[in-house]
Design a protein around this nucleic acid. Structure first.
Lengths: 213, 213
DNA sequence: GGTTGGAGACTAATACGATTAGTCTCTGCC
DNA sequence: GGCAGAGACTAATCGTATTAGTCTCCAACC
């Protein structure tokens, strides 16, 4: 009885003297840890065992906070989408047109590089019922819509252009973080060129249809 | 001794009366089955158990043909890269410039849609030592190089443009197959627009630097 | 024709991660 | 002090990967 009153080997104090009643964890802490693991070691390294160890807790205890492994992955994805959305929004504020495009693109890439695990989690297929996840995704996408609207105001056509831009950004950061670029050429320059290409493509598109046709 | 001479529950006859000596499998058959599973049920559904069941064999037997689960995934990736390379090459033959760009892009997308599992396997980080995998990837990328060279002949600059184009294609097919496009707008049209944007971007790029500067 | 070598399948055994069920304790509240 | 519930724990089950060791059959060689 002298050893291990409750089996804790956790880092630091475990209780919030204020509102919360029990020493235990909290969904946000679990998500934090999950994101940290995924970012540092890859999404595949995110296991419940690993997560529990990180938090100084036994695996089954995690089920009080997330819905199994899938739940943990979802938490990471949600965090990724929300943070990405915020980053994009911040980058876009006060800018428009090419200026906004570049800023948003840079923010997009920066986020993905800084949080490869969270970004990767974002790619998982989102169940149609998961409104929370869908909303977060939509919020991030909206920023791109707002930016591209500079070149095209017809909403239907806009969807296509946004898809093109998103695809380019998404593809680049995945190839980059996955080591998909074999050549030694500087990736920063490549990304700048990618944005140039998109920009020029949008310009040409806008020039081709001066009005909403 | 009456029951189960060798423990087979395999589908159909198991031997090639001709050249091969033993009833057993063959690396190519294993790869075929792995690709089939990955394409039909997703890369995550590719497990050794599942693969063994598919082939009418016990799990450990697979180790004679592939190097564990990672080996199976690698086999799928290799198949994907090779087939993709071939498809791109076929699409490019006899064309150049915008015509080639569109044909290659369409072939790229068609492959990814037809073989989502194999395409997904392609994304895995490739170890630097894996020459076979790298060669297959390079072969596919070369086609894009050849196409984009129409717009830019400086090899260093070309690398950037190729990355931009690859990124766009890669990003699109991933978003598409991952259900990343929430809107109902037709995806074919989006993809066509994406190619237009890339094309116009390349045109603008070429116009901006008439010579190799 | 018998022997031998090896490919390739199998069973047995181990380890690890996910998940569920049931138990125990601590905290805050009445 | 007693009660209710949050939240951690142990025990147990299951699926999958992986390794070790065994067995059988085919084919080439003597």
């Amino acid at each position: 009885m002298a050893a291990e009153t409750a089996g804790h080997a956790a880092p630091g104090p475990r209780r919030t003297p204020g509102s919360r009643s029990r020493p235990g964890l909290d969904g946000a802490q679990v998500a934090d840890a999950a994101v940290a693991i995924a970012d540092a070691e890859g999404l595949a390294a995110l296991t419940l065992s690993r997560l529990a160890a990180q938090l100084g807790v036994r695996t089954p205890s995690l089920y009080h906070h997330v819905d199994g492994l899938d739940g943990a992955r979802r938490a990471v994805a949600l965090r990724g989408l929300r943070d990405l959305g915020t980053a994009l929004r911040d980058a876009a504020v006060g800018r428009s047109g090419p200026d906004a495009l570049r800023a948003v693109a840079d923010a997009y890439r920066a986020y993905a590089l800084a949080h490869p695990g969270a970004y990767a989690a974002t790619q998982r297929v989102v169940p149609a019922e998961d409104d929370e996840l869908r909303a977060a995704a939509a919020r991030a996408t909206e920023v791109v819509f707002a930016v591209v609207r500079h070149w095209e105001d017809d909403e239907e056509e806009l969807v296509h252009l946004v898809r093109a831009v998103r695809s380019a950004l998404h593809g680049f950061v995945l190839l980059e973080s996955g080591g998909g670029f074999g050549m030694p050429a500087p990736r920063d320059a490549s990304f700048a060129r990618l944005v140039d290409v998109q920009r020029a493509g949008l310009d040409a598109h806008a020039a081709g249809r001066p009005a909403s046709s």
